[in-house]
């Protein structure tokens, strides 16, 4: 595994790492919006959006774990 690959993995980890708190904040935002919703349709919409953000976070965490594992292997640990 060359240095270029290690650099790419580190950059990708950084991208994924910075994206996770954004998904958490977005979920929190939609959950609050769902609480404030004045109609069932908007409440459902915000709840669905919050659920999707949870899915994004879970996917990003899964990818992060994979990237960290690959980086560890690339560094020869």
């Amino acid at each position: 595994m060359d240095k270029q690959r290690i650099k790419e993995l580190e950059e990708m980890i950084q991208v994924v790492l910075l994206a996770i708190p954004r998904e958490i904040s977005a979920r929190e935002f939609y959950l609050q919006a769902a609480k404030k919703a004045v109609s069932d349709s908007s409440r459902l919409l915000f709840s669905d959006l919050a659920e999707q953000e949870k899915g994004h976070e879970a996917e990003l965490r899964r990818i992060l774990t994979e990237l960290k594992t690959e980086l560890k292997e690339a560094r020869g640990h």
Binding site: G55, E57, A58, E59
Partner: peptide, 15 residues
Amino acid sequence: NRHHAGEDLTDFMSM
């Protein structure tokens, strides 16, 4: 090629 048995997949359903 993404999800693995032995895990909790609750958070992934929306995706």
